[in-house]
């Protein structure tokens, strides 16, 4: 009874009121105007709708993450196992033709790591090196194991026979690592109309050591060509140019700030931050003497320093030490 009266007496917050009056009741107080109540119900409905939409989005996201990717069609395998199409003399594994490289990168980004292994196996069945851009035949070592005479390592010949050389193995496994630990990028998809485009695995070829970064960079650029539209590339070029300019201005600013700090005359803030420093020598009267050891209480000093804990009871310290020799709790005593 008392609880009811307190409830009716107390001014209630709207939300609780709303919950209580979910079945329409007549004893609702007239104090909250009907407009306000309708607005709260509207917001509640909106809130529910929002929550529902968010839940649906989360569900879709989860489904998208957990769904199985469709398997790679056999035609792709056949195509990739017949690569490279470019003639061998100008192009080889270290210098693939841009068309082939872009084809490999675009088709490999839908691959699962296991499917990439299948591709290597498929190329080996045809007697080719497992690296998709290598025109050479694979090695044919015999026996179970092979010992490297240089490093002394032992390797399975089945592993060695997948490639034509160690360099190709590195190149192929470089791609495999990127498939194993994918970094995603968004590409503008052609017909789907989705604003963000499709998320795909970002892939790039291994940079070649031999002839500098120039060639690999060109190949990377060539590989990147089919990924974006012309506008995107223009935007990117502009942004890059701006970045260059920004870098120059930033370098200039830094240099001037540093000069100002140093007080160099070249700095723009050279005059502002300087402080006049005058050095005054104090006059010397007599000859320099070492500090005398004969000061009072010098016998209690430890290397010229008098311990402060003992200073208060400096007088009686010796007797106390003699009396309570076995006391362990006197940590602060320093006995000389």
């Amino acid at each position: 009874m008392s609880a009811e009266t307190t409830q009716s007496a107390r001014p209630k917050p709207k939300g609780i009121l709303k919950q209580l009056s979910a079945p329409p009741t007549t004893k609702q107080p007239a104090s909250p105007p009907p407009r306000a109540s309708s607005s709260t119900s509207l917001t509640r409905a909106e809130l529910l709708a929002q929550q529902e939409a968010a839940a649906r989005l989360r569900l879709l996201e989860k489904l998208r993450q957990t769904e199985l990717k469709p398997p790679i069609p056999l035609e792709t395998f056949e195509l990739l196992s017949q690569l490279p199409r470019a003639p061998c003399p100008p192009h080889d594994a270290s210098n693939p033709s841009p068309a082939d490289a872009s084809l490999v990168l675009t088709s490999l980004r839908d691959f699962q790591p296991s499917e990439y292994l299948d591709l290597i196996e498929e190329r080996n069945c045809l007697g080719k090196c497992g690296y998709a851009l290598c025109p050479r035949p694979r090695r044919t070592h015999e026996g179970g194991f092979k010992i490297s005479t240089r490093s002394g390592n032992i390797a399975r010949t089945t592993d060695l026979n997948k490639w034509c050389s160690d360099a190709c193995a590195l190149r192929a496994l470089y791609l495999k690592v990127q498939l194993d630990n994918p970094t995603y990028e968004r590409i503008s998809s052609g017909g789907s109309g989705a604003p963000g485009g499709r998320l795909v695995v970002k892939l790039e070829l291994r940079e070649e050591k031999g002839d500098g970064s120039r060639k690999s960079r060109t190949s990377a650029v060539a590989a990147a060509v089919p990924r974006g539209s012309q506008e995107d590339r223009d935007q990117l070029a502009q942004a890059m140019a701006k970045l260059e300019i920004d870098k120059h201005t930033q370098a200039r600013k830094d240099a001037s700030a540093l000069a100002g700090e140093r007080g160099d005359p070249g700095g723009s803030v050279a005059g502002l931050s300087r402080v006049d420093v005058t050095i005054k020598e104090s006059a010397v009267d007599g000859p320099v003497e070492p500090p005398s050891n004969l000061a009072k209480g010098a016998e209690y000093m430890v290397e010229g320093y008098r311990p402060k804990a003992n200073k208060a009871r400096g007088g009686k310290q010796p007797e106390e030490g003699a009396e309570s020799d076995g006391e362990d709790d006197e940590f602060f005593t320093v006995r000389l």
Binding site: L74, S81, E122
Partner: peptide, 8 residues
């Protein structure tokens, strides 16, 4: 006698 691929 080598392993069998798609083409075979």
């Amino acid at each position: 006698k080598s392993s069998i691929g798609i083409s075979v």
